[in-house]
């Protein structure tokens, strides 16, 4: 009870901080200050991802966004020696903010009105509270339980490390899965990535290679002779 209250507070704190840093990105005139705010924003976003139990995505967010992409941005900002802007806006400020606000209102409206989001006693949420204990004592009953129709939304289920361990290691008995601590997030993600999406993964690596070659071809100095 106490732990989940802490989790809740941490999510809201990091969400508000991330939004504040995102506002900082577009409010500062100095591009270096914008880049630093973007680093903080990505860090807080990674914290939100950690809180959701997606540890691998959080690490990737930190390494790729806050590490690689941000350093590239800072490198280019420093290399080009960008001055602070004299005139700030290309559109009138009012129009840009109005378009973005209308979009934000639309997204919030749709999110609130998703089916099941308002329903606090959503069956999905209550199922997953006891499913860990049930998976150990009575596996068929637990399987039947989770095949009940789940509405989209409601409360996010608690991470069930017992069931996840069972799914990752088919040879494991329910007892040893319950005894094993930790949530095999990377293992399950890797299983999906390298079996179901293997071809897409290989094609993606070609896209990255094309990106590297293209960046070198675009940014090199063209000789006149």
């Amino acid at each position: 009870m106490f732990e989940s209250a802490i989790c809740q507070i941490i999510f809201y704190v990091f969400a508000v901080l991330a939004i504040a840093c995102a506002v900082g990105v577009i409010a500062f005139r100095n591009p270096v200050a914008s880049a630093m705010n973007m680093a903080l924003c990505f860090g807080f976003t990674a914290a939100v991802l950690f809180g959701m139990g997606a540890q691998f995505m959080g690490i990737v967010q930190l390494i790729v966004y806050a590490g690689a992409i941000l350093v590239l941005f800072l490198f280019v900002v420093m290399m080009l020696d960008v001055k602070e802007e004299e005139r700030f806006c290309k559109l009138p400020l009012f129009i840009g903010l109005m378009v973005a606000s209308v979009f934000a209102g639309m997204v919030v409206y749709v999110s609130i009105n998703l089916p099941g989001v308002q329903d606090i006693t959503c069956p999905f949420a209550r199922l997953c509270d006891n499913i860990g204990a049930l998976a150990v004592t009575d596996t068929p009953a637990a399987t039947a339980c989770v095949q009940a129709p789940s509405a989209l939304g409601g409360y996010l289920p608690e991470l069930n490390s017992t069931a996840a361990n069972l799914a990752a290691n088919p040879g494991m008995t329910p007892e040893s899965a319950a005894a094993a601590t930790g949530y095999p997030d990377v293992k399950l993600l890797g299983k999906t990535l390298f079996t179901q999406y293997n071809i897409a993964f290989v094609i993606l690596s070609f896209a990255l290679l094309a990106g590297t070659v293209g960046a070198v071809a675009l940014a090199r100095k063209i000789r006149k002779d």
Binding site: F11, V23, C41
Partner: peptide, 18 residues
């Protein structure tokens, strides 16, 4: 209890709008 899905979606929508 944990956090509703709607709050994550609102957070992501606000970040997108900014």
């Amino acid at each position: 209890m944990t956090i509703p899905l709607a709050h994550y979606l609102i957070f992501s929508g606000i970040l997108f709008s900014i």
